[in-house]
């Protein structure tokens, strides 16, 4: 039987909003699938398109940018 697909998601989260929101989700014990790994940045203004291309290039299945 085929294993279900578990994507590997790279998350770029702004320190001031989305990263904080992910922390709050934790405090509130919201349960969500364990596929995302967050990279903290100080602002989504930091996002260089290179990061997204590189993530997909080295094998990430998806990229999430939250800011």
């Amino acid at each position: 039987m085929l294993q279900s697909f578990e994507p590997k998601i790279v998350g770029f989260l702004c320190n001031w909003c989305c990263y904080a929101a992910a922390d709050s989700a934790g405090v509130a014990r919201f349960q969500y699938p364990p596929n995302i790994r967050a990279i903290r940045i100080m602002c989504t203004g930091r996002m260089d398109p290179l990061f997204i291309i590189d993530a997909l290039h080295v094998g990430a299945d998806a990229v999430f940018v939250g800011g």
Partner: peptide
């Protein structure tokens, strides 16, 4: 590495996956 707020607290029902995610982080 934020293995509490972004991991153990939000993946409490899937401890193995949470352990793997902690290693990744």
């Amino acid at each position: 590495a934020n293995i509490r707020d972004h991991c153990s607290w939000v993946h409490a029902m899937v401890p193995e996956a949470a352990t793997e995610k902690s290693k990744d982080l």
